[in-house]
Nucleic acid binder design. Sequence first.
DNA 1: GCAAATATAATAGTATTACTATCAAATAAT
DNA 2: ATTATTTGATAGTAATACTATTATATTTGC
Lengths: 223, 223
Amino acid sequence: MERLLKTMKIGINEKIYLKDPESSDLGKRILEHSINLINEIGFENFTFRKLGTLIGSNESSIYRYFENKHKLLLYLSSWYWGWLEYQLVLATNAITNPSEKLKKTIEIFTKKTEIDSSFPHINEVLLNRIIINEYSKSYLTKEVEQENKDGYFEIYKRLIERISQMITNVNADYKYPASLASTILEGSFHQYFLQEHFPSLTNCDENNTPSAYFNDLVFKSLK
Amino acid sequence: MERLLKTMKIGINEKIYLKDPESSDLGKRILEHSINLINEIGFENFTFRKLGTLIGSNESSIYRYFENKHKLLLYLSSWYWGWLEYQLVLATNAITNPSEKLKKTIEIFTKKTEIDSSFPHINEVLLNRIIINEYSKSYLTKEVEQENKDGYFEIYKRLIERISQMITNVNADYKYPASLASTILEGSFHQYFLQEHFPSLTNCDENNTPSAYFNDLVFKSLK
DNA sequence: GCAAATATAATAGTATTACTATCAAATAAT
DNA sequence: ATTATTTGATAGTAATACTATTATATTTGC
């Protein structure tokens, strides 16, 4: 995968970090290796101390970039949603037929993630796994109300609103475009989780992709 | 709401607890007040020490019932799924028409929870909120593989398999009964979460219930 | 009604987590 | 070359997530 706009940077709400991790070498190493470490040991077991040891840096230095690991997770997920939005716009912008556009959108959200060489310090494949396994934890908190006001979920919300709009463009009479958009997004990540850990609770596997399931679901709904 | 089978007890995998909390007064107080406290401060901030203070008991006494708060969450959710299964069977058993049966099932999963006076130490309304806000955390862990083998999610899985079977009974040719069943279950709880915290990401509100949305979704899919 | 068994409470202690503060050393900018 | 900025090292605190021990109730069996 090759990026078209070489100078593009995923724009993330500045309140999420104390110091922009994209602005320094240490910052980029924090991003790169936090993705590896969270994948390896899970978000609950992940600590800044362990990350510091891993990258040969100091715990206190990491705290200068992020207040805590929750903020780091918000950063990583915002990055992911921003990246996905970029993929989405790139893949669907030229399509004029609303159904084709929506079909492509479902594909973008449900297909297997591939490495994007444009961002060498971000492993999108592992980041996708973090979204599947940890993203819910970033909003299932007592602070969600305030953090939503602070705009920490804006890219995610914008993505769903985009899908919602595309649904309406296919069928303006459909009554639940936002709900269906949310279902597609959360649901497709959940189907991947089930595939790995609870295969009896899904029909998705090598032959039946989540893509096929959601295409069926969405287009029957909009008929 | 009145229970028909007075002696019924929700059966929970014995490996989840060290000592059956239903077997003593302290155990029941642990269940009752953990539901209140988790609702109030959230699962992350909840500790056995705080719970002990609240119920005028000792931290170490609570540890004799549950290894840790994760196990307590597994207990509470198993109880909830068992209770829902009971509601489901009761409400649908007599229905012979497969479509009617499935319609009733969707209603059971999406309707607002009401207090069940049969279990005075369990507040089902608050427990429902815990499921909405905390259940994902019980399986989004590094231990999910082992805990699944140990049977900690069996009631949840059985519930989804029941819905899946009902879907197949309506349309035997439908290719994704398990995936759709998972989508109904996770999705309906998620729609309630969105209603409360991200209303722009759902069309469900006082007038448009999640029930209506999922009925539309499911029956169009099965046509 | 009493002894034995069991359940609960009180206290203390450990390792880890989630930070904050301070100061020194390295690096970059002017 | 001086100053400012960034990073590293060390130490310290309060809270968490437990375990262990012993004392005190309470229940049960005979």
